[in-house]
């Protein structure tokens, strides 16, 4: 099983998925992120899926779960860089990624986190 590296930049954690995720790696990433949010005191998480060619229901559910978990730990999650073909397929599949914030790219994801925090005070 391959583990996805988690980078820390200020109070943001950045995960860039570059591998073909199997279900085991997905679950591991979920756990690692939750641990890391707590240990680093991060306020935001960005999951970059620019390189991801497919998102099936399992991976899609991971995004929702991570968003919900990090929100409980007082951090917002943004999924960035979803490809058009992936988005179209998710819609057809019937997956709405409820509760997950999305942005077009990493830069806009960072801006979104700042905006959300600014609004929250």
């Amino acid at each position: 099983m391959e583990r996805v590296p988690i980078l820390k930049l200020g109070d943001i954690l950045i995960v860039s998925i570059q591998i073909d995720l199997d279900d085991q790696s997905v679950l591991a990433l979920q756990e690692d992120l939750a641990d890391m949010v707590v240990s680093s005191g991060a306020r935001g998480v960005i999951i970059d899926i620019t390189a991801v060619e497919i998102v099936d229901s399992f991976i899609g559910r991971m995004f929702s779960t991570i968003a919900a978990i990090t929100r409980m730990l007082d951090a917002e999650t943004v999924v960035v860089g979803m490809r058009p073909a992936v988005a179209i397929t998710l819609v057809e599949l019937g997956l709405s990624l409820g509760g997950v914030r999305t942005a077009l790219n990493l830069e806009k994801g960072v801006a979104m986190l700042e905006h959300v925090r600014g609004a929250a005070g």
């Binding site: 279900d23 060619e53 099936d56 058009p84 073909a85 179209i88």
Partner: peptide, 15 residues
């Protein structure tokens, strides 16, 4: 888009 659809379906059915 069709590649992505069939690969996603394959992933779901294999799982």
């Amino acid at each position: 888009v069709d590649q992505t659809k069939i690969v996603t379906a394959a992933s779901e059915l294999a799982r």
